[in-house]
Design a protein around this nucleic acid. Sequence first.
DNA 1: CCGGCTGGTTCGCCATGCCGAACACATGGC
DNA 2: GCCATGTGTTCGGCATGGCGAACCAGCCGG
Lengths: 195, 195
Amino acid sequence: MAEQDHHALRAHIAAAVRAERQQAGLSISELARRVGIAKSTVSQLESGQANPSVETLWSIASTLGIPFARLVEAPPRGPRIIRAADRTPVPSAESDYLATLLHTGRSSAQRDLYVVSLEPGEPRSAAPHPPGSVEHVVIGSGRIRLGPEDAPFILEPGDYATFAGDVPHTYEALTAGAWFALLMEHPAGTPGGPR
Amino acid sequence: MAEQDHHALRAHIAAAVRAERQQAGLSISELARRVGIAKSTVSQLESGQANPSVETLWSIASTLGIPFARLVEAPPRGPRIIRAADRTPVPSAESDYLATLLHTGRSSAQRDLYVVSLEPGEPRSAAPHPPGSVEHVVIGSGRIRLGPEDAPFILEPGDYATFAGDVPHTYEALTAGAWFALLMEHPAGTPGGPR
DNA sequence: CCGGCTGGTTCGCCATGCCGAACACATGGC
DNA sequence: GCCATGTGTTCGGCATGGCGAACCAGCCGG
């Protein structure tokens, strides 16, 4: 493998560790303490001067609670295509069983699946996610107004919505005890989270 | 990190490199030649005695033309349950807003997101999906018994479960008006659907 | 002022990852 | 038979990853 590829890999690892560490709100010293390694190791790794062993990097990923690949693999370059699927109910052989296809797709994007609980109060404005981020939402309980800040929609249990996560968007519970399942897709290597 | 975790990681890497190398029809000597490393390095790595550097392993993955993660991380395949009461919320700046990460991943797999509604009756047995299929379920309403046919679990609203979809599995509503959100992952190019 | 804690960087030391060489074995051609 | 080429394993040597220590800076309390 070419030396410049190794150079790029080291730089990516350095940037990814730093980003994930800061996303988790940890200092170099605290991360090192939690992982059980020397803080000088973390420091040198984040400087891009290191070719760490797999075990060291695995330990860091585990402590940060993220997939190992997120620290290592470079973000995909070039245009990314997600096919929009028609919302066609899948016929089933029995009437007590009905499946509705909401979304289908295939990409190398990072995917995070959450349950988000919220109570009535001020609308929650979320900062835009990295470019290319998309959110898919299925309401579990309660009435919830959510979506792009300039045009949110009101959803009820069982409703599905998808919208771009890279523009300002909002979540607001209109009833108590509201929650929804959130599938968040964002480019690999970038931080996630509903925020 | 515990030593046994390192031990398991080394064993996994060793087995994965060997399997992928053989799948590609290469000898240790030929793989080493193509990667540009010593064949003794490959040999020792496949013996499970090595803690390779990231660059070495990255070079091997690149030469084999596979995602790096495949050499390092095994996809979780065993059934997993997170009940609504056991979720660990991600701290947010405001107390009316909690998000729980249930699953995260990245692959080139096809992904289908459904809402599945069902009523009490005979348990619905689903045929195994293509090898590598995984199902993620979040219960929206009702009590539902689902999962691998030999060991299904009973879930309630807000509960999350994941299990392999390439073995016989079942869905059964225990109360009326039950539904759940289903995220189904299966290898690209293969048919999907809850069936 | 001091001491204790935090933060991060740099340095020298030691164990180990990766190297090439040696070795044993197998196969095919002459 | 010999020779050339291939296979995989083991070994000793060297460069480097990870270590702890030293250093510097900042903050807080006595």
